[in-house]
Every structure is written in C-alpha cells, then in structure tokens.
Nucleic acid binder design. Sequence first.
DNA 1: CTGTTAGCGCCTTCAA
DNA 2: TTGAAGGCGCTAACAG
Lengths: 333, 333
Amino acid sequence: MEKLTIKDIARLVGVSTATVSYYLNKNYSKMSKVTREKIRVVIEETDYRPNSVARNLAKNENKMIGVSVADITNPFTSAVLSGIYDACGSKGYQVVFTNASGSYQREAVNINKLRQEEVSGLIIDPVDPDNPIYKVLSNDTSVMLDRQSDSPKIDTIVTDNFKSVSVFTNKMIKSGYEELFFVSWPLGSISTRVKRYEGFLDATQYANNDHLVTFEDTLETVDLQEKLQTIMHKFPNKKIGFFAMNGRVLIKLLHAMQDLRLSYPEDYGVGAYEDLEWMGVIKPGISCIHQYSYEIGLKSVDNILKKIESGKNTNAKPKLIVMATKMVIRKSY
Amino acid sequence: MEKLTIKDIARLVGVSTATVSYYLNKNYSKMSKVTREKIRVVIEETDYRPNSVARNLAKNENKMIGVSVADITNPFTSAVLSGIYDACGSKGYQVVFTNASGSYQREAVNINKLRQEEVSGLIIDPVDPDNPIYKVLSNDTSVMLDRQSDSPKIDTIVTDNFKSVSVFTNKMIKSGYEELFFVSWPLGSISTRVKRYEGFLDATQYANNDHLVTFEDTLETVDLQEKLQTIMHKFPNKKIGFFAMNGRVLIKLLHAMQDLRLSYPEDYGVGAYEDLEWMGVIKPGISCIHQYSYEIGLKSVDNILKKIESGKNTNAKPKLIVMATKMVIRKSY
DNA sequence: CTGTTAGCGCCTTCAA
DNA sequence: TTGAAGGCGCTAACAG
C-alpha cells in the first residue's frame, strides 16, 4: 500500500516523468497514441492519484477557495455553504471553511489562516464587515456576502434588505395594523439590521426610534418580555404588529409572547425576515420574507472565480450585488 | 505586494534559510537569542507568512482533515460541523468539506476527491455507510458518524438510537397512549432509522409492522395524510400516539395532521428524535430526544487525531462509540 | 549556534 | 514524440 509517485508510474510504463505529467494535464498532443494508452492503463491498474499538494506547489495555484463563516449553526449559512460547495465542485475547486462563531477576533484569526493556506479565493460571510483585517484583502480574490461594509473594499452580495422590509411592512399597514414595531438584536452598525430597520421606517414613517425594540441575544427573554408587555398595555385598542429582524429573533419574540399568554394573529400580528422550515408548519403559519440563500452561495463563487480566472489585477472598484427576495404570506397577521 | 519567501526573510535578517526554518518550527534551541529576536522582528515587520503548501509537501503531512457530509442543510450536520471545526482549530488543522446532498454516487466522488487532496484524516457522515467506497478506507485515518455499517470497517460514532427511543416510547405508554405508531421515511437499511424503530418495537412489543408508517421524502404529503387518516379512523376511542423518526419527518407529520384538522395533544400525541430550535417555541412544545450533535463533532475529531498522531498502523478493529442523548419533555403528549 | 544541501512530488522549459 | 533538469517554498540531516 505504498504511496505511488509520478516516478513509479513513469518507470512502470517505461517513459519519463515528464510524459506522465503531460498525460495528467491532458497535454495529449505531446505523446503518441500508444504511450497515451499505456499510461492510461497503468494509472488505472495502480489506482494512482497525483499528489495535489505537490501539484499545487509546482503550479503555484491552489484549487481551493476559503470560506469564512460568521456562524455555521445559522440556517442561512448552511444554505449558502451548500450553494458555494455546488458551484465550487463543478469548477474543480475544493472548499475549506472556518467558523467565527460570532466573534470578530476569531474571524480575523480565521482569515489569516485561510490566507496562509494559499487559497486562491476568499468568500466571507462577515461578523463585522468593517473588521480591519479586510483592509488587506484584494478585491481580485475575495467577495463578501450578507453583511456589507460602510465603505466596501470588495464586491459584496446582499439581499434587498431595505426594499423587502419596506414592502412587507406596507402590507401589514394595509392589513390594518396601526402600531408597528421592529424587533431586533441591537442594531449596532450591522448593515442587515440597519437596512431592514430603515426599510421599516420607510414604510411606517416613524420619526424616532420609539418603535424599535432591541434586546440582547442571550438565553433569557425576560427583558424582551417586559418590553413587549409595556407595548401591549400602552395601546389597548389598537392593532399591534411586530416585525422580527430574523428567524431567531422571531423565536424569542414568540416565546416571550407565549409567556405573556398572547397569541397571534388574534392579539398581535407578526412577520419576519427569513423563511425557515418550521414557519410553514406551525399553527398559524408565519408570513415572512424569503431570501434565496443557496443562490447567494452560487453567486459568490461565480463572482470570485470570474475574477480569479480571468484578468489578473483588475482591481476594479467594488460592486454591490443585490439579490431579490420573495414575500411569503401566510397567516401570522 | 510580492509574496515573500523564506529566502527573502533569511536575506533580510542575514542568516540562512535553515535558521529561519528552525525559527518557524519553534526550534529555538538551535539559535542564539539575538538571531531569534532579529528574525522575530523581520517577520513581524514584513508580515511574512510561510507557504503552508510548501511546508506540507516538505513534511509530507497535510494539516487538513476532510469531511464528507451527507446533507449540509440538515441542522444536525451544521452542529456536527461546528464541533468538528472547533476541535480541529485548536489542534491546528484546517477542515475541507464536501456535500453529497443525499446522493451516494456523489458521496463516492467526494471521498475520492478528499483522498486525492492528501487530507490526513477523513470524517464521514455517510449517506450510505455500506458504500463500497469505504472498503478502501483505513481505520487509521478515518471515522464515521451518525449512520453505521452492518459490518463496520472503521470507528463509528452514533447516538444511542435504540435505547433512547425505547425509553421515550415507554414514557408515552405510561402516559396512557394505547396505540403507538412509528413514522419515518422508508427504513431501508439505514441504521439510524432501523435502530430507532427497533427501540420502538422494544417498548411497544408489537409483533409485526402494522404500526410502522413510512412515506417518501417528497414535497407532497397526501400519501402520508391518507395513512394517518386511516389510522385515526381505525381507533376512534383510543389514545393514539406517533413518534417521528427525525425533525423533518415531524414537520411533515404535523403538516398532514393540520390538514386533517387534528391537533396535538388533544387528538393525538407526538414525539420525535431530534431537538430543533422551533420545537420549544411552537404552541404545545414538542417532547423529543435531544442528541448532542456538537459533541459528536468534537468526539470524531478527537478519535481521528488520536489515531493519526499517535501510532502509525494500529489497524485496530473498529470501535462503536455510542453517545448518550437527553429526553426533553414538553407538552406534545 | 549556523550554513549547506539534498530532497518532498510534480511541472515545464529546453534539447534531442 | 520524448527525456533531462531546474524549480516551486520549505524541511531536516549533516557539517562546520
């Protein structure tokens, strides 16, 4: 069970390693039909597989793209990864991933590891798109997705956060909801949260942040619960609606409401950004905004491979690629 | 922005590449404090990062472990991957993954790609643990998880399928359920499904398969719906309970029941193998069996690195490692 | 303590 | 159509 090298099979066939190398690289024009066939047979019989590490070193190109993921347990991420993998596979690239688990320090470490690994491209689902680490990245070999930087240095693929939420919120308004609230983890400068909130404001025309409910992403939901209760008490005779910034926020929201013995759509209306499996199953289905996560993965690979494989140092200015979403109307408001 | 090599920094410092190499490998005993410090400074200033491809070739070891995943969109898989990543990271390994999307042909292709990549270890979440491709794998460098082969050739990490379901089912029986049904995709020879069903039979002591409900994993649920209706009609005066083989089966089950205008726990009782985020949120919470997926990921890396890093060709006989589960009792029966 | 040098497995001009 | 040989960036004896 010794590891075979190109030398071994060259010897077995009775040619030089160069010829075998040509064969491996499909440079068939450089050999006779006879040798070509002989090589084929030997490789097949010995089940020889060229060492791709050596190959990568020699060609100084690593057919590998690195992915830095903010949090792999996020369902959005799985779908994106799935798209990334499929697109890479069809182009002969492997994908190595790293997971920051929501920590931007870990994210920086991860990016460096990936760069050291000599990956030929980097796809980044950032914890913090303004992480200084990204300053050193070239737009020729990287692409971001989901969250965008204020001053993007590299191409970024996002969903249509602003418009989607604006349209969705307008639907709620038309359905008679009088007081709307945007529920989210602290906005900070995280673009997805901010843009969605801006879409919300665009539809509601609220002048201040009285209709923004934020809470920390911890196990406890008492804080949120109190805030919700206050709201519900404040407008006893109005139709109150909530928009959850994402699926996990929605879960917390529903949880808290349940503890308050409140049900949708009777006591309150609700919608969310993100369409998860269970949202269509639970009793009154959740109306929400569906984003095409798999396609985002596909698109990101497309973008990066185009850059890598074509021109060298285009150094083109960063593009913002906006992906459409889909309204999914069910019974939650 | 030229790529620096070990030569460059050797020249910059004024030593030979060997010394620098020693430094990189923390062989500090082989140099004076002075040169050590000089090297440190230069590396820091130039932001030099050794090319790990070259390093791998020279040492003939690839600090990379490959993961073949059956279906990355499965939440179980995300959690496992998360564990794998964390464990690998702390040991200095990168992880490259492949996704079979449920196809065992693709799985075979993926495994081969991974082997070619010279990964030093292989973690396999198999579509089909009896895939012929696994015959050629060595137990010294691979480990399986979740699904097990009839005649395992390599270490396999599984959850305690049989016992968990048996215990869980017994709880349902003690709660007064008279007719219990096991709902699943076709069992085939997939160990997780079979073992869980056997646990079910162990508790219920049913002598035949009258209480097994299987259906195909397609978008339509009419088939399942009819079967459920038949059952519900057959035992009008009994307490009927269902156990879903996994989270996705449960979703279909709930969906079908909803279409039949039936609710749990009034009309029927229900439980499931797998504990997903939403199961604790929806109105009557779902009682279920929680498996420690993240820990399975951890464990698999632990297993494989121990084998890789210690002895060479132990070729020990394959072990079956069974991970405990946890009952989560909520309100669904 | 430090440098020389021969590889690791494969690729790729350059000659033959 | 084929082979010889140098090189990719780094490692690890072996000398000194």
